[in-house]
Design a protein around this nucleic acid. Structure first.
Lengths: 223, 223
DNA sequence: ACATTTATTATGTAGAACATAACTACTAAT
DNA sequence: ATTAGTAGTTATGTTCTACATAATAAATGT
């Protein structure tokens, strides 16, 4: 019987190097702009081939955590988190449970931005929003695109660019889930025009109620 | 003066191969479990070295989009989006604007989960939540950990695992921003125990007002 | 002192070689 | 004939070498 054997890291070298580097970055308290050792130095220090190091570094480059220039070498940089998110957000290969979770997440965001909206809305914003809502009524053909434009504008009004971009990524998920369940795009009793009116003259509380009513058909689908 | 010059793909081969593969995956409508061509075949088809292909593939492996077994080859698999998010969510190297955005995002989520909560809460959940709130009052020393436990439990109660994990990742960001601005951890007039009470016997609307009041100190910091 | 040329260096890319795990097919033994 | 064992095959994992390229630094010449 075997005994005293090590479980061994069954993971690949590149994977382990990635973990080592990540630990190294935080341990050494690296900040954006800080230069990194050369590939050869890292390879020597880690006891692996330059090739493996490059595979691990390639991962960090994709995440935007590392930038490189020839001769100059590599430096730490601040990653684009939403851009990274985009790289994995493909409805076709995601499991249904997660898709459903993201669908709900979108509803939660929609319900939660009310306070930010009232904190930051401007008259110019409201004018634009009103214009979008009006366009929708005229052009019945473009309902989905104005639907997207309206809610997109709401996120824009929060002044939170990360959230705005994030919501934009969730749109295809939303559409995909709707299609999966063969549901049509219906809105509740409260229309976009109603919401604009509340935003202009109403209270935060009223807006929250309005948005809930507007999204009610979607909530009805959740058990 | 120069004119009519092409911007050129200044990107690296690995980066371009990554893009090509991504396009290939969607074009061919790959689904989890579907086998991929071998590294050598891909290298030949793309006209690059196997090395470059491996760097690109390594990226997909990190995202969980590709899994490999020796001899058998590579297959598409469904990625873990929250796990990927974790890889880029390092407060130390993120720019302050994004940190601020994520801070707000957390508040938005907190305000937005009310409807899901009332849709899915159970008595067992409420008992546990009450226990956490009670523990907090007794042990003043562990305020921060019970704070985390309480709000974490709320997300758990939504039944949305993705959101729960996501919120968990945002916690360090939240703490980091608080520290950046030298703010202390204060809660509004409505306490955790109040929130439990509302969850048990109150209405959704009351809970939303309660949560807003509970988070008011944080909202006050936003302009 | 300035412009030009010449190393130098770190990343980018290519190709070959071999190890290793896992699958296939064939063979031998009971 | 079923099983067990063996050899062969194949795709990934890893290493090494070589050279191209861009950016910097050093050296040179006027």
């Amino acid at each position: 019987m075997v005994n005293g054997i090590k479980p061994i890291a069954a993971k690949s070298m590149a994977e382990r190097v990635e973990a080592s580097l990540r630990e190294y970055f935080t341990k050494e308290n690296f900040k954006p702009g800080d230069p990194l050792p050369t590939e050869l130095e890292l390879a020597a220090a880690l006891g692996v081939s330059r090739n493996v190091v490059r595979e691990a570094l390639s991962r960090f480059k994709m995440l935007g955590i590392i930038e490189t220039k020839k001769k100059t070498g590599m430096v730490i940089s601040n990653p684009d988190i939403v851009g990274t998110f985009e790289k994995v957000l493909n409805p076709e290969i995601m499991d249904e449970a997660t898709l459903q979770d993201l669908f709900e997440l979108r509803l939660v965001l929609e319900m939660g931005i009310a306070d930010l909206l009232f904190l930051r809305k401007t008259d110019a914003d409201l004018d634009e929003l009103e214009e979008i809502a009006a366009r929708e009524v005229k052009d019945k053909n473009f309902r989905i695109s104005t639907e997207i434009a309206f809610h997109g504008k709401l996120y824009e009004m929060t002044g939170n660019n990360t959230m705005k971009r994030f919501q934009n990524l969730l749109l295809p998920i939303f559409g995909y889930v709707m299609k999966l369940e063969n549901k049509k795009f219906v809105s509740g009793k409260v229309t976009h025009q109603d919401l604009v009116k509340i935003l202009r003259k109403g209270t935060v509380k009223e807006f929250k109620e309005g948005m809930l009513s507007h999204l009610q058909p979607h909530f009805d689908r959740l058990k």
